[in-house]
Write a protein that binds this DNA or RNA. Structure first.
Lengths: 202, 202
DNA sequence: TACAACACGTGATCC
DNA sequence: TGGATCACGTGTTGT
């Protein structure tokens, strides 16, 4: 019968339809990119993508220069830890960026140092920025991929949190009153007050 | 002879080659986007573009929140004018963003007001931000497309420049000495000093 | 006429 | 095998 022929024909039609859907997905994304980036309305596909690339680079520039390259402690105590999956050459390497923002106390710094050195990771970068009575500590760790990613992230987070908690405990002991709110206002930005070298501090 | 056939064949080959080059241009851009955005290495074309869209949105968020939504006057006198081609629904509408940054003087404000009102455009938004002795004025004009775009941009630019020049002239008259450098340092950022409503000022 | 950009269907390849 | 993705050449249209 034409059974084989029917099968083949149906398969072929499915194929072309699938391909059509694929094109539609891609073009839809290109379309939203056009709406996202001004002036790309009547551009070539290639030109559009070129503009997209420029925009991404431009925005990256803007965001880093808006921060002025200077890390600024906020008025809110917090610890942030995130993994980065550095895929240099489709690679087997990752990095973890960890930060701790809190009041500036020398005892915290030594606790922090101990906690960081106790971690099964090498810190490839460390920065301390102070602003008034506040401090922001940033560490970048690197790993070789294979060691459990999220597990490491969690241990780093726990390490920083324990440092912060220890500080809270001692603080609560020394002055039990002014602890109502952990948040403090810091009014002004003082560039010369910000430091990025460690030797001076610990 | 096969002259016609030759021609046709060559044409066909040119065609396919041109198409190949086109694909290469597009894929090259997609490739650099992959290098630009982490984690997209083994993604689908469509998925890649999706990630690109997310990145653009994310970066836009970051840059606006890094500026804190607050316009800040710099220490450099300047006027900037740019066209924006608001293509809402593949549209016939554009907008012009114009800004003037300079020392804060009341006379400048009234001159500025006159200059802006004399323009053949309606201002849909206006903001004034002050910081110490400095001010940043931002205007957004809208037009219906069809009126000469770049010509309007130039006239807006000229209007703002004339305001600035007039100020320079009067300043030069009043104090001929301290004019060596137009640039002044403004050290600190004071949020409460920044205003976005006009009624209070003019 | 020739060139540029696009959408389409098809064969190849990889899970 | 079937489903998904890709590169390719071709038909079509606009300049």
């Amino acid at each position: 019968m034409g059974n084989h022929a029917d099968k083949a024909l149906i398969a072929l039609r499915n194929h072309s339809e699938a391909e059509r859907r694929r094109r539609e997905r891609i073009n839809a994304h290109l379309s939203t990119l056009r709406t996202l980036i001004p002036g790309t309305n009547k551009m070539d596909k290639a030109a559009l993508l070129g503009e997209v690339i420029n925009q991404v680079k431009e925005l990256r520039r803007s965001v880093t220069e808006a921060t002025n390259g200077t890390l600024v402690p906020t008025d809110i105590d917090e610890v942030k830890v995130e993994e980065h999956e550095d895929h240099l050459n489709d690679g087997t390497s990752f990095s973890i960026r960890a930060s701790l923002c809190c009041d500036f106390k020398h005892e915290i710094l030594s606790d922090l140092r101990q906690a960081v050195e106790a971690l099964p990771l090498k810190a490839v970068r460390a920065e301390i920025a102070t602003l008034g009575s506040r401090m922001l500590n940033v560490f970048v760790f690197s790993g070789e991929d294979g060691e459990g990613g999220q597990i490491l992230v969690n241990s780093v987070r726990e390490a920083l949190r324990s440092v912060l908690d220890k500080f809270y405990a001692s603080e609560e002991f020394s002055s039990r009153n002014a602890m109502a709110s952990k948040r403090r206002r810091v009014s002004f930005f003082c560039p010369s007050d910000s430091s990025s070298s460690l030797g001076d501090i610990w």
